[in-house]
Design a protein around this nucleic acid. Sequence first.
DNA 1: TTAATAAAAGACAAATTTATCTTTAATTAA
DNA 2: TTAATTAAAGATAAATTTGTCTTTTATTAA
Lengths: 158, 158
Amino acid sequence: MYGIKSLKGMFSKACEYGIRASIFIATNSSKGIRVGIKDVAKEIDSPEPFTAKIMQILTKNGIIHSAKGVGGGFEVSDEAVKSIKLIQIVDAIDGDKIYKGCGIGLKECSEDHPCPVHHEFKKIRGLLLEMLTKTTLEQLASGVKSGDFFLKTLNIND
Amino acid sequence: MYGIKSLKGMFSKACEYGIRASIFIATNSSKGIRVGIKDVAKEIDSPEPFTAKIMQILTKNGIIHSAKGVGGGFEVSDEAVKSIKLIQIVDAIDGDKIYKGCGIGLKECSEDHPCPVHHEFKKIRGLLLEMLTKTTLEQLASGVKSGDFFLKTLNIND
DNA sequence: TTAATAAAAGACAAATTTATCTTTAATTAA
DNA sequence: TTAATTAAAGATAAATTTGTCTTTTATTAA
């Protein structure tokens, strides 16, 4: 009605791009294909230079691997695709506040000193943490490969 | 490890302040007391001018009521305290993306065209929506009045 | 009617996030 | 060894969010 700001999602844009990029890279790595930053940005519909920065974070955190030079690009090893959980990507980019922090921003919020929404948020944080901890890159990538899941919008004008 | 950003919570800071402020105002309105912006900011430990802006949004959205002049300040009517749900505050300040939007930022994400985390996020969004829809300002305020819940940190140096 | 009080409104500034551009370093192949 | 390719790194800029300050408007009480 009279809000101030554009809408705010669960994760930062950087994190959204990071997750989508990781999944795209994983779908190609299983076929033995390295993908360059141009392909990544094009496929997940993200700004290329910004996406490159995020790839650097993911690379430094050991989530994806990069190779310079001709035939280089980004990849994820078969073992990594199986072992990497969504939470590792979120942690690397957005940190743990989304599933650990107080819902209304108290620096100190605990069972002994709870904020008014502490108990309600505990369930949500718990479910989010469980989901992030259980979901592997492989699960997500296989859904994309099978055509069940998508990494960008259908509408070309978005 | 090598992240870029400060930690990002579920809601914006504006929304966190808005929720805390609404609860504080409600705890006083039940005692028939109007509170000024100074008291609000002091009690919820927030920047006063920024908090004033957020109060304006809440007022325009009919969540709280304001009175200018001597003896003025912010209040919430008894009926409003009972009927207002957390979701109204969140909607007014942050919008509905947190409980409606795609987890990884696709503009079009639905049952027919799901992103890779669509089904997992559905549960979390649903739980969050349920909680926001069910929780009233009264519930939160009564916990603060009884001393069970807190609106700011214990530690004076935070 | 005047003075005091308190929120509303508007302009502005700082900090953070998002996005872009240029240069450098590493790798491959000729 | 040179040229081409590709990511890394660094500088910069735009956009958004957060925070501050000043002026205006409304209300109350004297």
